[in-house]
Design a protein around this nucleic acid. Sequence first.
DNA 1: CGTAGGCTTGAACAGGATCAAAGAGGGTGG
DNA 2: CCACCCTCTTTGATCCTGTTCAAGCCTACG
Lengths: 245, 245
Amino acid sequence: MIRMQPGLTCGKPSKAPTEPCASCGVRHLSICNALGDDEIGHLGQIVYEFEVLPRETIFREGDAAEHCFNVTSGSVKLYKLLADGRRQITGFLFEGDFLGLAFKKQHNFTAEAVTACTFCRFPLDKLEGLLGRYPKLEKRLLREAMEELAAVQDQMLMLGRKTALEKVASFLVMLSRRAAKRGRPGNPVAVPMNRSDIADYLGLTIETVSRTITQLKRDGVIAINDLNHVNVPKPEALAEIADGL
Amino acid sequence: MIRMQPGLTCGKPSKAPTEPCASCGVRHLSICNALGDDEIGHLGQIVYEFEVLPRETIFREGDAAEHCFNVTSGSVKLYKLLADGRRQITGFLFEGDFLGLAFKKQHNFTAEAVTACTFCRFPLDKLEGLLGRYPKLEKRLLREAMEELAAVQDQMLMLGRKTALEKVASFLVMLSRRAAKRGRPGNPVAVPMNRSDIADYLGLTIETVSRTITQLKRDGVIAINDLNHVNVPKPEALAEIADGL
DNA sequence: CGTAGGCTTGAACAGGATCAAAGAGGGTGG
DNA sequence: CCACCCTCTTTGATCCTGTTCAAGCCTACG
């Protein structure tokens, strides 16, 4: 379990082409795609692009909520802390994922870069203006929120009722599915986060995560090349373990 | 237990006044309040009211999602199951709470009455029509969904990182706050659900819940009259325990 | 009364945590 | 290019919180 220390504020701006959103590489993955080619210019007018290094903080729990963001590359973790430093990672984000929309004054979790990342940033007040103007954007956000709520219930089932083995298996299955959805390899699964992040996501310790991965390896369900890439010879077996079968 | 079938009505209809929504007693708590007096008649035209007994199911995980609901009285639990029967209760609902909005074909959790309940039911297709017509209704739903997402992150922090004592304390604090928000007594906290439901909400066993409550009692943080009503002589102490202080 | 279901309490167990130490890279500077 | 160091990961030994198994208790209800 990690104790947090104050980090850096977020990053430097990256290139700003004339039509940033129209030609965006992850538009098809993101909420921006709710707007058509003729409308997306409005997003481009309020967007600011920037990049951050691994471990840099995008925003902290309690910060004034003035912007929301789209991840355009890299991976991000979201977490909450208890007073004594116990940490729960509530989610990981990848390219195309949206974060930071809150109708409250303050963010209620911290967002931190796992790898180097690039983001689009939107001022919340201006985005809300666009929401009023384009109902389909709002509808898209609502849909996204409902999907998130569904996913989060699976996560609670996992946290509250699954064994360590089932948790680790669920985690790998989740990573694999999300990679596949982005057109990336789902089988040698990319695992950009370290053991500590995995542990804090699963509600375990790094030692238990490590031992469990070793066990899956011993049982031939997974095979490990480098630490950040897991081969899954038997995806069905892994999925069954994840579901408690 | 009464088996529900998709598409069929559950429970029996309750009275249907001429203007059901305009005079609704929980309107101020619910999303319906997004519509003004002049507009709310449209809701009344598509609403169907009914009641269910304790332990009756409103809908099951996997059922076709054809309706959404507003709880008008009573308490409801939402849960997911693993194949072997392990259960995680992902939330409790009380009067004014909304459930069942899904943009997927199927519900992804089960909703079951804890106490006797009354509901308003809305056909999803017709409600979506109203959403298009009244953006403020959609905005209200989005806001509600964001609040739900924020609450659910606290819940994950609890499930993954809190001790049994902290979990039980958090649970009581949650019940107390939600009761207060509805203008009900927050101090003798009403606890409508049984130990088994509490356990499955907190990711514990009934024995651990029972022992933990006994401990809180022994420590003078709570006092118990009847099993369903908890007195909290030291609310601050309980809140501190809940936050891990 | 008597019984059944839910709650509490006790005793033993176990899964995962904690404490400790040894490997494995990877980057840096000599 | 290599030696050193720092961090992350793995593995081992022990501990402890919460589980499991089991028995008794209370209360509502027939």
